[in-house]
Amino acid sequence: MMAKTPVQFSLNGSSAAVFVDDAQNLLDVLRRGVGDLTPKYGCGQGTCGSCTVLIDGEPHLSCLTLAETVEGRSVETTNGLAAGPNLHALQEAFMENFAAQCGYCTPGMLMAAKALLDRTPRPSREEVIEAISGNICRCTGYDPIIDAIMAASGQATRRTG
């Protein structure tokens, strides 16, 4: 029988405790074990970024993270962004700037953007592009996403194309 390992971590500020299977990845544990469906499964191989979560404040790909390695650490997902009915500034800006079409990439984009703004509250456009360079969006052409992140940082947007 497959071994189960107990893992405890902080999920969006609340404590989470789950039993994980051998070699189970964090994305699977978040979605099926904890029931947080905000991180998405796109590729399972690190290329799309739709599973991006923050571990100890830094972006990580949850599909490539062995679940038991988050023991005792802090995990943040899009589920923790809004405070009750109040959306996070990034979520508001994504709505205002039409940065989500199908929305599949959006949770990963939001977490990559949050990591950037937490560290660099007023980033340059180039820093925004760099921050989301591991996240693929097949719908928007990226400019609305970049504009939204600039807007969330309180800076005027500047479309390039």
Partner: peptide, 9 residues
């Protein structure tokens, strides 16, 4: 090497 999330890992 990769994007920011890959580089953290």
């Amino acid at each position: 090497v990769g994007g920011p999330a890959i580089r953290n890992m």
